[in-house]
Simulated scan of single mutants.
Amino acid sequence: MKLDLNTYPFRLEQGYELGYGPAGYETMAKVISAFQEPQSDILFSYTNWDRDKDPHKGELMESAAHDFHYGIINDPATSSKVKEILLLHYAPERDPKVSQAVMDQLLAYFREVPLEEINEELLRKIGSAVYEKQGVYTLADQDAATQDFVNSRLVDTNSVWLLPYERPVYLENVLWYRVNTQEEMVQAFERTDWWFTCAIVDRSKQVEDYRYFLNYTEEHGEDHDGMVLYISTPDPRHFKDTVIPRLKELLAEQLEIVG
Rank of each mutant, 00 (worst) to 15 (best):
A34Q: 04
H238T: 01
M227L: 11
E172C: 01
K83F: 02
L3A: 03
S79G: 10
G21M: 08
H66I: 12
D235F: 07
E132A: 09
I231Q: 09
I32L: 11
T146V: 04
I85T: 04
D67V: 06
K30Q: 12
E132Q: 14
T7S: 13
E37K: 08
L18S: 07
E17K: 10
Y25I: 01
A91F: 13
A188T: 05
L162H: 09
L247Q: 09
N151T: 14
G21T: 09
N48M: 01
S40R: 12
P38T: 02
K53T: 07
Y165P: 00
H66M: 11
I42A: 02
G19Y: 10
G226R: 05
E184V: 03
P168H: 01
Y210D: 09
V113I: 15
I72E: 13
L171T: 01
D4R: 14
G71R: 06
T181W: 10
D241R: 13
E93H: 12
K133A: 13
Q206N: 11
I85N: 02
V113C: 07
W161H: 00
E172N: 07
Y177N: 02
V155L: 10
I72G: 06
S80E: 15
E184W: 08
H238P: 00
I72V: 14
N48A: 04
T78W: 03
D223A: 13
